[in-house]
């Protein structure tokens, strides 16, 4: 498996504050990868380091097998809130894209603009949030990048615009086969569009894996209160909570759990993500709340 992105003890500091500290991860190529984690986990910093907009303070980052360079034709980036040039028209954006990128696919760009119903003569500053996001995605995709990075691309969009954006993104993925890494708080969206998920908490990878595997191997167990020290081989405790009479566990296990003294339930991806966020390093509740903001 080749890697789209490798980070090794990657650190970014602003003065004394660490935005990303000692982050080590390996993101496989050829996937749509979701990056989730509480605010301040370092997701945006990681993405900006990956497209060369920031330089690391320490550690190493490699994107498509090389050190990231700002403006690389192989890497596309859609920043948070999908910024565009308000004073330029839609057509100006495409002209500028063609001018700046040797690999520019003008046919793709014009087809997509027509498909999503944008008026080429419209000033970008007058576009709705959904239209602006579609323009930013078109400009990034028409570069024909091998890797497309998106930072919270749909956070500010209404549900219809969000769905339209994701439809367009998946159509581009099917056509061009590029790798995608997108950060989002909207786990339900990620569950649809991502086939690989990484949960990042305080710069650390809490869990990473194919979405289907994560769904198949995580279980919620509810039963009489008991000690959780010996869950058995091949089972890892992700999160636990207890009352005086009852224990509720989230467990990762490759084998099915048939113990009749537990009520065993499936978890959706959001439950799994929340379990990893709150299961991390003690101060659980705060992190969960932060993650849901």
């Amino acid at each position: 498996m080749t890697s789209a992105l490798i980070a090794d003890a990657l650190t970014k500091r602003y003065g004394r504050r660490s935005a990303l500290k000692d982050c080590t991860l390996d993101i496989p190529a050829g996937h749509v990868v979701g990056l989730v984690g509480p605010n301040g986990a370092g997701k945006s910093t990681l993405l900006q380091l990956a497209c060369g907009l920031l330089d690391p303070t320490a550690g190493r980052i490699e994107v498509l097998g090389a050190r990231p360079v700002s403006g690389s034709p192989r890497v596309g980036f859609v920043a948070q809130d999908t910024p565009v040039y308000a004073g330029l028209t839609v057509a100006d954006h495409l002209r500028m894209g063609a001018h700046l990128n040797p690999s520019w696919d003008a046919v793709l760009a014009e087809r997509r603009i027509a498909q999503v119903g944008l008026d080429p003569a419209q000033k970008a500053g007058k576009l709705s949030g959904g239209q602006r996001a579609q323009l930013a995605l078109t400009v990034a995709a028409a570069k024909r990048p091998h890797l497309l990075l998106l930072d919270e691309p749909v956070a500010a969009l209404d549900p219809l615009a969000r769905r339209n954006f994701l439809q367009g993104l998946m159509e581009l993925t099917a056509e061009q086969g590029m790798s995608i890494v997108m950060s989002s708080h909207l786990v339900a969206d990620l569950e649809r569009v991502c086939d690989h998920l990484i949960v990042l908490v305080a710069s650390r990878v809490r869990v990473a894996g194919d979405v289907d595997d994560l769904l198949a191997t995580h279980h919620r167990l509810v039963g009489r209160r008991r000690d959780t020290a010996d869950l058995g081989a091949g089972r890892a405790l992700v999160e636990q909570s207890h009352t005086e009479v009852q224990s509720t566990l989230v467990v990762r296990s490759t084998a099915p759990i048939v113990d009749p003294s537990w009520q065993v339930d499936r978890l959706d991806l959001e439950d799994i993500v929340l379990a990893y966020m709150s299961g991390a390093t003690g101060d659980g509740p705060d992190r969960v709340l932060e993650g849901q903001r």
Binding site: V32, Q167, M170, T173, A174, R192, V193, D212
Partner: peptide, 18 residues
Amino acid sequence: TVKEVVARVAINPNTVSK
């Protein structure tokens, strides 16, 4: 086709192929 499904359902192409 995979492309038709993903463009409609907003779902990962690999999921459809799988």
